[in-house]
Design a protein around this nucleic acid. Structure first.
Lengths: 335, 335
DNA sequence: GACAAGAATGAAAGCGCTTTCAAATTGCGT
DNA sequence: ACGCAATTTGAAAGCGCTTTCATTCTTGTC
């Protein structure tokens, strides 16, 4: 660019015949100012179309009015709901969210968090992720942090976790109560905490029902469509008998559903299917998917609110968010 | 926060026994510096764990290294692909994207653009939207703008548009070539330019094929799942005969598909279905959706690249991106 | 009507960095 | 060994705003 006719606070001050301090005071309501000057300044602001430079304000005040948000994939149907929740919670507070993606890579996540810190964000929200606890605790020494998907306590750090184990238990239990005993599980990404917890819930439900776990029934679903597709194909090819599948997330459930469709297996008449997450789209799959609802949107909202409280040292609001089974049409009693 | 032990460039300079200018020069490679000082400064930086304050840099240089991105809904499956493309194109350039959402409201879009300008972003990308052309041209006077979804020419403003009419024509033509003559169209949001263009393409294909347009066949699909669902239900309830539906976007196609499923109508055996957009999920619907591919990801990438070129006055790269019909399994010749 | 207390205002320093400008250093030719 | 140009370096002035501190102007009080 070449031509940028930005008008500054000094110009406004001069135009209004007052000092810069006065203009600043009026802008921020920092102190009482005589009606006459106020009017004259406001007039000058309007006339010159003056807009404060947020960067300069940030530098002077030592706060950027920006919240850094580390997500894994900005296009992930699940996390983007949380982003939306964050955006919503921040709307009207003056803070703007700065989103960065870690792509499920601890290294990259660390780099991105560093980027946020370099930009002097006033707080950081970490939506799950593989970044180690210590790294998080360390950044919490420089800037308040709110993290989801793990339980962790440290100064200037607050964590919000949901009970994935319980959610998975409820889903599996539901299938068992329907009469299923051969329930396949499409497990999530190895090493991912949520994946582990969901598997554990699946196991506990089986165990409580006195159903011996068949290792052949738990296969890798990768948390994505293609993984679910491959997993079910594998099961079918290996002729492992099953009447239901509990997918570790909706995306792999959708993949599973397609695999079944291709083999001419009907859902839920031949095979019952239950997912996890309750993505917006899961309401419109054929048939609509029975799934465990994760309040992604609320989670984002809550994380943002909690962080704001942390930033100005107010006591944090309540932190519990429920998981709930949403019964739709993709599961029924086995034939 | 209370304790923030940020180390500054001055401290580094003092620790290394040089002037701040020298440190700055080393940091930015702005000028040659003796090997000895360089080493000493680098050592000090490492020892103090110094990280430049990007805000301060921005203020001093007059550029924030931030690109503002106006999208409509950060959780939209379509636009988030573009966001990802933008993120990708910006990675490694030093620029970070600042995403804001306009929610398809001209007013809100304007406010959000203002917010971006106040934050002194170095450029703005507008992903479609309802904000009027003049408003865009006006902001282009303060900061370079790249806008998609419309054709517009102005200083410091570049637009990238795709040929929606042609895409819709191709989709409709495909159905006609398959032998369909009763083709319903689930139109997009009223007043939305893309919606209009797609409707026009549908009409042109019909016309060229000598098929008289039946007004009863074009219904409002609202660009979303529920709209598609309602639209098809309406069609079915009104007993309007049709053998195929061309939805103005994939989301409404998914809704349509569910409506058909609920009525026991098979896709594609009974009704053929074609969408528009090629969302990531459309590959996994049952059956996989035949649709017009919009290169959302590439569009984002291109917009970002073009903007970067605009920012430093380099000639812009080529701007054409193709729409293409992706044939999958949701359409076939009528029974 | 004089004086202390309070309110409104401005001067100036500073936030952390870049960059111009001038001074100090170096190298080189002769 | 000397002078000049080419380098390297530092001082200092911003970038646009906030905020402390001191000053001036009002009030209210006796």
């Amino acid at each position: 660019m070449n031509d940028r006719p930005t008008t500054t606070l000094d110009q406004v001050a001069r135009a209004a015949g007052v000092s810069p301090s006065t203009v600043s005071r009026i802008l921020n309501g920092t102190a009482r100012v005589s009606e006459a000057k106020r009017r004259s300044v406001e007039e000058a602001i309007a006339r010159l179309d003056y807009r404060p430079n947020v960067l300069a304000q940030g530098l002077a005040r030592g706060r950027s009015l920006t919240i850094g948000v580390l997500t894994q994939d900005i296009a992930s149907p699940f996390y983007s709901e949380s982003l939306k929740g964050i955006e919503e919670a921040l709307a009207g507070t003056g803070y703007a969210p700065l989103f960065v993606s870690g792509h499920w890579d601890a290294e990259e996540e660390s780099r991105k968090v560093a980027l946020l810190v370099d930009r002097r964000v006033d707080g950081v929200i970490v939506l799950t992720g593989m970044i180690p606890d210590d790294a998080l605790i360390a950044t919490a020494e420089r800037v308040p942090v709110a993290v989801t998907g793990r339980t962790l306590a440290a100064p200037h750090l607050i964590s919000i976790d949901l009970d994935h184990e319980a959610g998975a238990y409820a889903a599996t239990r539901y299938l068992i109560d329907l009469g299923h005993t051969r329930i396949a599980h499409l497990a999530g990404v190895q090493g991912h905490a949520d994946a582990r917890a969901r598997l554990a819930g699946y196991r506990r439900a089986l165990q409580e029902a006195g159903i011996a776990e068949d290792p052949a029934l738990v296969v890798d679903g990768q948390f994505n469509e293609n993984g679910g597709l491959d997993a079910v194909n594998g099961l079918l090819d290996a002729r492992v008998p099953f009447t239901a599948v509990f997918a570790a997330n909706d995306q792999s459930a959708v993949g599973a559903r397609l695999a079944l469709y291709r083999r001419g297996l009907r859902v839920p008449e031949d095979i019952s299917l239950v997912g996890f997450d309750d993505l917006p789209g899961s309401l419109y799959t054929t048939p609509p998917l029975t799934t465990v609802r994760q309040p992604a949107h609320e989670l984002g909202r809550l994380a943002a609110r909690v962080l704001l409280h942390l930033i100005d040292n107010r006591p944090a609001p309540a932190l519990d968010l429920p998981m709930s089974l949403i019964v739709r049409d993709s599961a029924q009693a086995p034939a």
